[in-house]
Amino acid sequence: MGEGQTIWEKMGAIDRRILYWALFISLALPYIKPLGLPVSIAETSYALYNYINTLGPNDVVVMSIEFGVSAWSECLPGFVAVSKHLVQRGVKIIYWCVGYTDCDLTMEAVMARIPQLKGPGQPAGPGDYKYGVDWVYFGYIAGGETTVAQLADNIRNVLRTDKYGTPIDEIPLMKNVNSARDIKLVVDSTTGDYGDYYVRQWRMRYGTAVAEIGIAMNYSTFIPYYQAGLAVGALKGIRGAAEYEKLIGEFGEATISLDALNISHLLVIIAIIFANISYFMTRRKGGVR
């Protein structure tokens, strides 16, 4: 900030480290004093919830982990909330990942948050999800959209064993599951374009229902599919996850994170207002921009 600058000019060219500290502190504040504001439910969250309510123990759903550890804060709570809903409904679940090599860590995190999901060899009591019978995990599958298309055509052409080396034909859940025709819903949780892949390769070709639990940024790119009837629902980032937690009645990480969302969004808006005041005051005084 040079000599002779007005207060408005200084405000317009504020050192970004001040902005970063302001954001850091405001993100930390809600953890000391939670706000606990109410949240309303968006139409797309309701739509996904209602669709899953039509499913039952004879249906199979694919949960596609298309986010890395880096996006846990935004994608994992929604992914867990939808998984919990599927467990409540008794729906069979297939987990796999086409995009991120660190998906094993994500699967571990999902299992840690849903105690009913029992791993291979773990005893399953009443109400638990027995591995191989009620749910299965195939790990990372390379190949992007090509693989998504091949999985739609014939799962056995791509997958020979599950993540733990069990041949696919020895997994009871997979007995009658061969292609996209045998899947009632694909829920794709993504930070990128994977929702598009499933719409193109599963919904358009086989009519399989598709839903997305994306980062908030992806919501706007996925909405055209929802409006065209090509998707049965979508969750908008951490807010969508909090809405879903409210819908299933199990409040979790998303609800806790909402305070940080509130404060950070408000801070950004206040900063933008300040920046614009500075801009107009500088322009009025004939400052150069």
Partner: peptide, 16 residues
């Protein structure tokens, strides 16, 4: 700018 601010407020419960 206005649309962006409204979407941000709408994305966070504090907007309501």
């Amino acid at each position: 700018l206005v649309a962006g601010c409204l979407v941000m407020l709408g994305n966070a419960p504090i907007g309501e």
